[in-house]
Amino acid sequence: MAPPKQSLTVLQPTPSTVSFTVSTRPVPKTLPALFSFYLSVLVKILLGTLALTALWTKWRVNTAKSTWPLEIILGDTFEEWVQKAVESIQWMYLAPAALAILYKVIQRGYIESLLALSSLGLQTRTSSPTYLSTSTTRFIPTTAIQDIFIYEAFKGFEVRFYLAIVVKGEEDVVVVFPKLLPRRDVLEEVWRGARACLYGGEGGSGIRRKHEREKQEI
């Protein structure tokens, strides 16, 4: 039930550029962590192929077609063994199980980032939750940014903090990190950094200002 652990990475290649990245993907550092990371990737690939093979074999066996690629890869005895195993499982169990495995395998953690470029603007990016689709990015030029603030809203059965950008001419605010909704301390760090980068100085003049805006559902 516990949500995956989030980590914040701040990258400042030049004084006028900061990128804040909140991620639920693990970043392995030590050797055992690196090892287990690659191991998990390997396991994922294996599981994925297994699920696909099972589905494909079941289909070939059911339609009474030959499963010659299996013979080439695994050899005679293994082919027969796989066929028998697949035959003994009904579609109603095999299909959901295989799909569930595939779903788990292609899933990966979210990465959401905010890139602040001094005097240019802000770029938000939300990675896709699977390996199959690409991330979405949005660039907001400085001229269109009216404000950037932290506020609270009801979400489900709780009240969450969110970081939002007010864009000129748009009815709704743009929520930064919309999927992960990091904790307040993370948001405050990002907010300070982004304001400092955008408006210069000590985090902007309005650092203490409270904003009386509201948005019920993020």
Binding site: Y151, E152, A153, F154, V159, K210, E212, E214, K215
Partner: peptide, 9 residues
């Protein structure tokens, strides 16, 4: 209330 939702100060 209608037109008064979320958190306000």
């Amino acid at each position: 209330y209608a037109g008064r939702t979320g958190i306000r100060y």
